[in-house]
């Protein structure tokens, strides 16, 4: 296990100059309800971005637009040089290259842990089964649960399930990882084991976008924190500046609520 002091090094990780994800002027409505308003966001290779904001501010919606689980109505989203449009080829390309971890894990209960991990490599990447199994075991070791490979998700604890979900995304060798409140369905003692895995992942240079309210995580690994409210990006800054020197009143209010409850 990596002691948290080690994690500091993640802060000095190199950030590339090539753009991995770019949202420009993105707008989205649910019926009459304007969820995303002129979102502009550029994510460079190797960046670790934490997105926070009050409930209902559109964090999940924004992050889900990046792999087209939600469709945006105006603006442009480009992932790894591919623009998301109605073109199914583009959508499938983006989904292959972008991993996503959900609040409720969304593991497949009818498959063993190993089968959960190898499903996409075998059927999407057309990897031979032997190779996929080996890769899956490698990632299970990375999330420290190789001994659970032949169990079913229903037999694991929440923390273990979330680590399996992370490993499942990693098996596709993604260029970007999206996390939507990966720890908020977990008990406190399990949050730690999941965060440790995420910190290690950040140290390995993965480009990450995390919606989370784990401010400790944001301080240790994020190079940028984004604050959203009412469908807008209100403020973005380095963690130090963001936490110690918030600019907008809404950010101050949010931080006071989240840090002193």
């Amino acid at each position: 296990m990596t002691p948290p002091t080690h994690a500091k090094s993640a802060r000095e990780l190199e950030i590339g100059t090539d753009v991995m994800v770019e949202l420009s002027g993105v707008n989205k409505w649910y019926g009459q309800f304007h969820v995303l308003k002129d979102i502009d966001l550029t994510v460079y290779r190797g960046e670790r971005i934490v997105v926070c904001g009050p409930s209902g501010s559109g964090k999940s919606t924004m992050i889900r637009c990046i792999n087209r689980l939600e469709e945006h109505q105006r603006g442009k989203i480009v992932v790894d040089g591919v623009e998301l449009s109605h073109d199914l080829k583009h959508i499938e390309y983006v989904r292959r290259e972008v991993g996503m971890v959900f609040q409720h894990f969304n593991l497949f209960p009818h498959l063993t842990v190993l089968e959960n991990l190898t499903l996409a490599p075998i059927w999407v990447r057309k990897m031979p089964k032997k190779e996929a199994d080996a890769a899956a075991m490698h990632y299970l070791e990375r999330v420290r649960i190789p001994e659970q490979a032949h169990k079913y998700p229903g037999q694991l604890s929440g923390g273990q399930q979330q680590r399996v979900a992370i490993a499942r995304s990693l098996c596709m060798n993604p260029k970007v990882m999206l996390f939507d409140e990966p720890t908020s369905a977990l008990d406190p003692e399990m949050i730690k084991e999941v965060l440790e895995v995420m910190i290690e992942l950040a140290q390995s240079g993965m480009t990450m976008l995390c919606v989370t309210h784990e401010m400790g995580f944001a301080r240790t690994v994020a190079n940028r924190v984004i604050f959203m409210d009412f469908g807008e990006i209100i403020e973005q800054n380095t963690p130090e500046e963001f936490f110690n020197n918030p600019k907008s009143d809404r950010t101050k209010l949010f931080l006071s609520q989240i840090l002193h409850h």
Binding site: N67, L69, L88, E92, R95, R96, V98, G99, M100, F102, H104, F105, N106, L107, F108, L119, A120, W123, V124, A165, R168, S169, M172
Partner: peptide, 21 residues
């Protein structure tokens, strides 16, 4: 719904999602 989303997020197409998950 999470099962559909989990499978789609892995890059499976419609028939893959249906048949495998």
């Amino acid at each position: 719904k999470g099962q559909f989303e989990g499978a789609m997020a892995l890059g499976l197409g419609y028939w893959g999602v249906m048949r495998l998950v």
